[in-house]
Write a protein that binds this DNA or RNA. Structure first.
Lengths: 325, 325
DNA sequence: CTGAAAGCGCTTACAG
DNA sequence: CTGAAAGCGCTTACAG
C-alpha cells in the first residue's frame, strides 16, 4: 500500500463520495498500475451480498428458456448482477433439491421459470420472504410475484382462429396439468369451443409433457385413429413440431390435410411457418429481474407484482389464409 | 450451539473423516432440525474457492450455445460447480470488458466458447495461468487448451457431398474471418473444390456474421445476380436458414432449384430437413468442464489438452438423395 | 476527508 | 477425536 490506508482504498473502489478527489485519483492510478483486483469473494462476504441471481428453468437448451434467459441476463447485467442457471428438466420430485442447491450458491434471489402448480416448497420460500419471482408459470394459489403471459386468452385466440377458418374437429395436445401453462391453454381452448357452440370431446384432448417427442407420439395416436381431427392445437411449438413429424410420416400435408397451430413463437415457429402465439420472452425475463432486484435492494416485499402480458397471435401458413369451407 | 464446538460442526459439514460418527450423527440431526444453512459467502471466502465457472458465449439464446451450455451445466453440477453465463454478441471490442466482469464475479475458471482468432487479452490470461478452456473456437496461435470440432474436415465433407451430387457451381456464405470456425470452414470448402478440380471463384464466396439475417442478405445478393449458384453452403445453420428465407422470397425451391447445406446440426436443421454437419455440442461442453475442473483442483497446467472432435455428416433432403446430373 | 479497529462466518493448521 | 485461535480480505460504523 503506497501512501494511504486500506480503508481509503476501499472507499475509492466503492465510489465513496467523501474522499478527496485528488487522493482518489492517485489511488486509481496505482490500482491500474499494479493491476490490483479486489478479491470478489471477500467483498461479497463483507457486504453480505453476492449480486448473483439464480435462474431455474426446465431446460436451458430449449430455445424458449434460452431466449428468456437472455432477457434476464441483459437486465441483470444492467443492474450489476450475474446469473447462475439450473435446468430442472421439469422433475417436480427434484425441485426441492435444485432450489436447495441454488440457495447454497449464495444467490441474492431466485427467478423460477418452471414452477409447478402446487409446489409447496416454493410456497414456503415465498412465505419466508426469500426474494423470488416466478416467470412464465405461476402457482395455483396465486402466491408470490409473477410475470406471465395470459395463456388462457392466447389459447382462446388460437382456437378461435381455427374455428373462423372453418375447422370444427379440433384436437389439442397440451402440456401436463402440473403447470399453469398447460392448464390455462386447455382452458382457453375449451372456452373458445364452447363460445362457438362446438362440443368438447375428450377423445380430442391429450395432455403430455411439453416435448417434440411427446407431441409426435400423441399426434400419431390421433392421426392413426378412425376419428382424425381437421386441426391440431399443439400446446407449445415443440409439441407442434412433433405433430409435423408425425404428419410427415403419414404423408399428411400441412395445412392442406391438417391445420396446425403452436404456442410460444420460438424461432422454430418462424422457420416452419407455424401459426402460434408470441410470448415476449425477452421482456418477461427483463421484467422479472427488475422486480427481483427491487426486492433485494429495497427489501420491498409488501407489493404484489402480478404482471400478465397480452398474447399476440402470429398468423402463418400452417393454418391461416385458407378459405372457410 | 448445542453440545459441541464451532469447529466440529464445520468438520461434520465438510465430511471430515476424523470425527466420531456418533457426534457427527447428532450434529447432523440438529442441523436438520434447526434448518441451519452454512453461509455460502463465508464458506467461499474461507476456502478461497467459489465453485463457480464463468461461461462466455456469443449469445445464450442461440440454440447452438444453449445446447453447449446444457452440456457444461450438467458436468459442472456433477463436479460440484455452478455456471455463470455471459453473452458477448461477438463484440470483439468489448471482450476484455466481459472477461473483466467475469473475473470480478470470483469464478474459479473460465470457459470461452466464442474466442476471436487473435484475442490478445485471452492469450494473456492463458500465459498468466488463469484456469481457462476454449471450446468451439480456438486461437490462431494455438495457445491454451481447447475442445473444438474439426471444422475444416466438416466443411470438406459437406462440399464433397455437394460435388458428388453433381453440383459444380457452389457458393459459400461462411462466417467472419475473425473466428477459427469461419476460417476453417472456408478452408475445407476450398480444399474440396481444389481436390475435385473445380475452380475457386471469389464471387461465390461471402463472409458474413453467423446470423440468419446476414445469411439472408448474402443469399439475396447471390440469387439476384446473373451468376446464380447451383448450391449454397451456409457457414452455419442460421445462415442456411437465412438462405431459405431468401429462396422463399424468390420462389426458388430447395432442393429442386437450389441445393443447400448448413453446419452445426441444431434442432432447426432437423426441422428444416437441412443437410448439415453434427457438432457434439453437449459432449464438447462436458469435456471442457472436465478439463477446467482438473485445472482448478489439481493445479495441472502443464498438460496441453487439445481435443478435436470428428464431424458427422447429417444427410437430409435439402440437397441429398438427388441423382447426379 | 482519513484511519484504526471491529466484524462478516466460515475453514484449517496446530495443539492437546 | 475435539477445541481454541488465527486468518481469509474486504467493508463500515466510529472517532478524529
Amino acid at each position: 500500500m503506497a501512501g494511504v490506508s486500506h480503508t481509503t482504498v476501499s472507499r475509492v473502489l466503492n465510489n465513496d463520495p467523501k474522499v478527496a478527489s485528488e487522493t482518489a485519483k492517485r489511488i486509481l492510478e496505482l490500482v491500474q498500475k499494479v493491476e490490483y483486483r479486489p478479491n470478489p469473494l471477500a467483498r461479497r462476504f463483507a457486504r453480505k451480498r453476492s449480486n448473483l441471481i439464480g435462474l431455474l428453468v426446465s431446460d436451458i437448451s430449449n430455445p424458449f428458456y434460452a431466449e428468456l434467459a437472455r432477457g434476464i441476463e441483459d437486465k441483470a447485467q444492467e443492474c450489476g448482477y450475474h446469473v447462475i442457471f439450473c435446468s430442472t428438466d421439469d422433475r417436480l420430485d427434484r425441485n426441492q433439491q435444485y432450489i436447495e442447491i441454488m440457495r447454497n450458491t449464495g444467490v441474492d434471489g431466485l427467478i423460477f421459470a418452471s414452477v409447478g402448480l402446487h409446489d409447496q416448497h416454493v410456497e414456503k420460500l415465498i412465505e419466508d420472504r426469500l426474494p423470488l419471482v416466478l416467470v412464465n408459470r405461476k402457482l395455483e394459489s396465486e402466491k408470490g410475484d409473477y410475470v406471465v403471459l395470459d395463456n388462457r386468452f392466447g389459447a382462446y385466440q388460437l382456437t378461435q382462429h381455427l374455428i373462423e377458418h372453418g375447422y370444427r374437429k379440433i384436437a389439442i395436445i397440451t402440456g401436463p396439468s402440473d403447470y399453469s401453462t398447460g392448464v390455462e391453454r386447455l382452458r382457453g381452448y375449451r372456452e373458445a369451443l364452447k363460445d362457438h357452440g362446438i362440443a368438447i370431446r375428450d377423445t380430442l384432448i391429450f395432455q403430455v409433457p411439453f416435448s417434440r417427442e411427446d407431441g409426435y407420439r400423441a399426434a400419431k395416436a390421433l392421426l392413426n385413429g378412425a376419428d382424425k381431427p381437421e386441426a391440431i392445437f399443439g400446446g407449445n411449438d415443440h409439441i407442434a413440431l412433433g405433430v409435423m413429424d408425425a404428419a410427415d410420416e403419414f404423408g399428411i400435408r400441412i395445412p392442406e390435410d391438417l391445420a396446425l397451430v403452436g404456442f410460444d413463437d420460438t424461432e422454430y415457429a418462424k422457420s416452419m411457418k407455424l401459426t402460434t402465439v408470441s410470448q415476449r420472452k425477452y421482456e418477461m425475463g427483463s421484467l422479472a429481474v427488475q422486480i427481483l432486484v427491487d426486492y433485494i435492494e429495497n427489501k420491498v416485499n409488501g407489493y404484489a407484482h402480478r404482471i400478465v402480458l397480452e398474447p399476440k397471435l402470429m398468423i402463418r401458413q400452417s393454418c391461416g389464409g385458407h378459405p372457410v369451407r
